[in-house]
Amino acid sequence: MLKDLTLIVDARTKEAGSYALSLAKLIDAHLTLFLVDVETALATYSMAELRYDLILAEREERREAIVTTVTRLQSQGKAQGLSVDALHLEESNEAEIGRLNRTLRLFDLIIIEQAYGEQIGERARMIEAAIFEAARPVLLVPNIQTTPPSLKTILVAWDGSAPAARALDDALPLLVRANHVEIVEVVTKSSVPCDEATLMRHLARHGVDAVFRQTPSTGDIGNTLLSHAADVGADLLVMGAYGHSRLREAFLGGATRTILECMTIPVLMSR
């Protein structure tokens, strides 16, 4: 069950906040705001090249933005009758990222906004750490997301691998709520035949009425998945995460950057 959610909040979190609140309301879950203060605009400069007062001013501006976001989300949550609390991670250095992951393991689902703009480096680092080291499913919300969560149509990327199986299992509490669940296999030259009957029987025993489809790869599996998601009007994409922490390796054989940079719908990833 997904009863204990956490949203990673930094100075530039926008669309993921409202999405997380609505999701918690939809599935009757608790939401914890995990405040993370990360370096953004200063990341591309040597600290020695900047005046100390400018460094302090940028940090203060960042922290004020985080406080404003948290205050707004807690107020909105209270108005919706939600239980919303907050935890604070002071800095995003290596030691603190390790502590972040140890704490994230105590939640059912991690929600974070897609990396974009000036904060892409630091937030991408947090996303990678959460996916590969927190041992929990991560729900990525597009920075263009303006609509509340809908579970009408969920698309599950399947290749029979361990990460794909973990993602499928992690998503079951959401799949049982969906009106339509489609399991899609992107067919490549190296694809291994899927035991479709056993997969469908497994889902049916969990109360999930799903369909199985195969689609040929267009050369980039990430683009193939996103294109198919658009064709079927998917509200959520579920997929296994492949690769190694910090290495920007592939999801489903080569789709990391495609999914992380071009996602147009929320994506639940599990490792």
Rank of each mutant, 00 (worst) to 15 (best):
G254M: 07
T224R: 00
L203A: 01
A230C: 08
S191A: 12
P216F: 05
L203Q: 01
I221F: 06
V208L: 11
L247R: 15
P193F: 10
S191K: 04
D235E: 11
H206R: 12
V211R: 14
L203K: 01
G240N: 05
A241H: 01
D231R: 13
Y242P: 00
H244M: 13
F212P: 04
V176D: 00
R248N: 07
H228S: 02
V232C: 15
F251W: 09
L225N: 03
S245Q: 03
Y242Q: 05
H206Q: 14
H180M: 11
D209G: 09
V187F: 04
T224L: 03
L226E: 04
A204E: 14
V186S: 07
R213F: 12
S191P: 08
V238A: 01
S191C: 05
A255K: 03
F251Y: 14
R248Q: 14
E185V: 06
P193W: 04
T188R: 09
R248D: 02
I183D: 01
L236Q: 01
E185H: 15
D209I: 06
L174F: 03
V238K: 04
F212L: 11
E249M: 12
L236H: 05
L247Q: 13
T218A: 15
H228G: 06
L252T: 02
P193K: 13
E249S: 08
A204F: 13
G254R: 00
V211P: 00
V208S: 00
V187P: 01
A178C: 03
N223A: 14
N223W: 10
G219M: 10
A229V: 08
S245V: 10
H244T: 15
N179K: 14
A255V: 02
L175H: 04
V187E: 09
R246A: 14
S245N: 13
G207Y: 09
G219S: 06
L175K: 05
A178V: 07
S217P: 00
H228Q: 13
N223I: 12
L236T: 08
D220I: 08
N223E: 15
L174I: 05
D195N: 05
V181T: 15
L252K: 08
V176N: 08
S227K: 14
F251H: 08
H180A: 11
T218V: 08
A255I: 02
Q214L: 07
P216K: 13
T198Y: 09
L203H: 03
V184K: 00
V184L: 08
R201T: 15
V238M: 13
A178Q: 07
S227V: 10
G219L: 10
D209V: 10
V187T: 11
P193T: 09
H202P: 05
D231T: 15
